Amino acid sequence: MTTAVNWRKSSYSGGGEGNNCVEIANLPTHIAIRDSKTPTRATLTFPTGAFTAFVRALKTTGTPDN
């Protein structure tokens, strides 16, 4: 049985159709990531804890625009 995956884009995905972004989906034990320009191609999956730590590190470090 296949379960529907709810993909979502960042609010920072830009104007227009917002296709210059990655999308993420919460799976039961992992986070899936795909390129919004080519959604039917391969996805990357990470354990939820690893992805959470990655995002936390990004927020702590910041970006050049901050």
Score class of each variant (00 low, 15 high):
Ser10Asp: 07
Ser10Tyr: 06
Ser11Asp: 14
Tyr12Ile: 07
Tyr12Thr: 04
Ser13Lys: 01
Ser13Arg: 06
Ser13Phe: 03
Gly15Trp: 05
Gly16Thr: 09
Gly16Ser: 13
Gly18Val: 00
Gly18His: 05
Gly18Asp: 05
Asn19Gly: 07
Cys21Ile: 09
Val22Gly: 08
Glu23Thr: 11
Ile24Lys: 05
Ile24Thr: 14
Asn26Gly: 10
Leu27Val: 04
Leu27Asp: 03
Pro28Ala: 05
Pro28Thr: 01
Thr29Met: 13
Thr29Gln: 15
His30Met: 15
Ile31Cys: 12
Ile31Val: 15
Ala32Arg: 04
Ile33Leu: 15
Arg34Ser: 00
Asp35Ile: 03
Asp35Val: 01
Asp35Tyr: 01
Ser36Cys: 03
Ser36Asn: 10
Lys37His: 04
Thr38Lys: 11
Thr38His: 11
Thr38Cys: 10
Pro39Gln: 07
Pro39Tyr: 00
Thr40Phe: 10
Arg41Gln: 11
Arg41Pro: 04
Ala42Tyr: 06
Thr43Gln: 09
Thr43Val: 10
Thr45His: 12
Phe46Ser: 15
Phe46Glu: 06
Pro47Thr: 07
Thr48Leu: 08
Gly49Met: 05
Gly49Ala: 14
Ala50Lys: 00
Phe51Tyr: 15
Phe51Cys: 05
Thr52Tyr: 00
Thr52Ser: 14
Thr52Met: 08
Thr52Glu: 14
